[in-house]
Design a protein around this nucleic acid. Structure first.
Lengths: 235, 235
DNA sequence: CGGCTCCTTGACTTAAGTCAACGCACGTGG
DNA sequence: CCACGTGCGTTGACTTAAGTCAAGGAGCCG
């Protein structure tokens, strides 16, 4: 998994070995666990190899805004000691397999030029994704938002080999989707129903299928450019 | 101005000289000008020394989402050649004084350790701000959103000496505010009116005064931590 | 003095939120 | 192995925040 991620963002040599080590020290974490809390001192990195995690913030009234998904292959790097307090929390949405990378090994990884470059690319893509999500919440209707999110997930999961054709497992609740898209779980439910009725998606259990991807892409005005490593490798 | 920005994020020596040079090659740009367009090849940096600019994205139907403000002292650094296409546009909201920094000089600046560190800090703060805005749009009411935005602007403008007491010049339209907060200009107008009626803010022309900052902060649940260099210098 | 663009306001519509109930699946413990 | 609890999904009836449409006014510039 980790391999995949690094694989596309930059060419690797035997850095793969370094990553393999990481995968060794992996732990299984139940859903709803905070891996890092707001206000913590950032250190090292965290990598997800299975399941969905997220970055989120809370309001005093309990309202939650999810600002990013961490899916298998994703790494979040806390540029150690540049900022000394984290402004958000990272928690699991489903059961996850997580690798924690200490500050020392983190430094080692960043020493390898190819990996360092990969990590910076990841950071830039994450930021671009943040902007796209903002557009999503601010300027798209409920149905469009969900359509867009599903398209994004398909692309990202494909990149790590976790989608087969146009379908993938989405191990998170509609409440999570609501907190991602800035809506209510009730309205997420209805909007998903609308997409289903329109024949754009299908769901059985945790499995989602984007039956009519072209129409979905058009509806959401989805352009994958912001996620694009492709542009990278082409360069 | 530039000095200020760097001043807080990291201690400087004679890097100031390097920055001074930048300020020399500065141009005046009218409002509504795009400095960099989506799809461009990123190169060098752009610094704003006067006026308000922003990052934004457009939808096919013309809807605009502003994802960040660039105020005097802000620099945006396109990590040259890491990504090769920009996913958003940068344009001026008011008349601006802008410094364009070529790729070569950009590299030079990044060579100076203190400046490099400063730039990375800026990038991290920008990202944190992005997350806070997302929370703003996704999970706060119209009035709260505006209150939060105003608080943020006060803090940021203070940091560069552009606020006197609790008031500052806001040289942008209510349409811009709407595109920032994911609402309509009409509703921005009404919500601002509400803040004014509640005695929280005052406006005359472009000048905004946050009369009752404590209540405004409370209403918006504003915590400046995400902008905090203070934390940095303390470290 | 037009002719912009922006601000302001009112009347009305609509998308999304709220409240509430019920069913279903899952997991745990008796 | 079944009984029960709990969290999630689903649906309906109703409320509300925000959007839409539209028109007038204010400021600014050439």
């Amino acid at each position: 998994m980790l391999r995949k991620l690094q694989g596309f963002s930059k060419l690797e040599e035997a850095d793969a070995a370094a990553l393999a080590i990481i995968e060794a020290g992996t732990r299984l974490v139940p859903a709803g666990t905070d891996l890092i809390s707001e206000g913590d001192r950032p250190e090292g990195m965290i990598a997800i190899t299975e399941g969905f995690a997220c970055r989120y913030k809370l309001r005093a009234n309990g309202a939650r805004q999810i600002t990013a998904y961490l899916i298998p292959g994703d790494i979040c790097d806390f540029e150690t000691s540049i900022l000394n307090r984290i402004d958000h929390t990272i928690g699991t949405l489903s059961t996850c397999r997580v690798a924690r990378i200490g500050p020392e090994t983190g430094r080692e990884l960043r020493q390898r030029p190819a990996l360092a470059r990969g990590l910076r690319t990841v950071a830039l893509v994450d930021e671009a994704t943040l902007r796209e999500w903002m557009m999503n919440i601010g300027r798209r209707s409920a149905v469009e938002r969900l359509a867009h999110l599903l398209c994004e997930l398909l692309v990202r999961l494909r990149a790590v080999g976790l989608a087969s054709g146009n379908s993938f497992d989405l191990p998170i609740t509609q409440i999570d989707l609501a907190d991602t898209t800035g809506m209510t779980s009730v309205h997420v439910n209805r909007s998903l129903g609308e997409l289903k009725r329109a024949g754009l998606i299908e769901r059985k259990g945790k499995r989602v299928t984007l039956c009519d991807l072209p129409r979905l892409v058009e509806l959401a005005e989805f352009r994958s450019n912001y996620l694009n490593w492709e542009a990278q490798t082409a360069a």
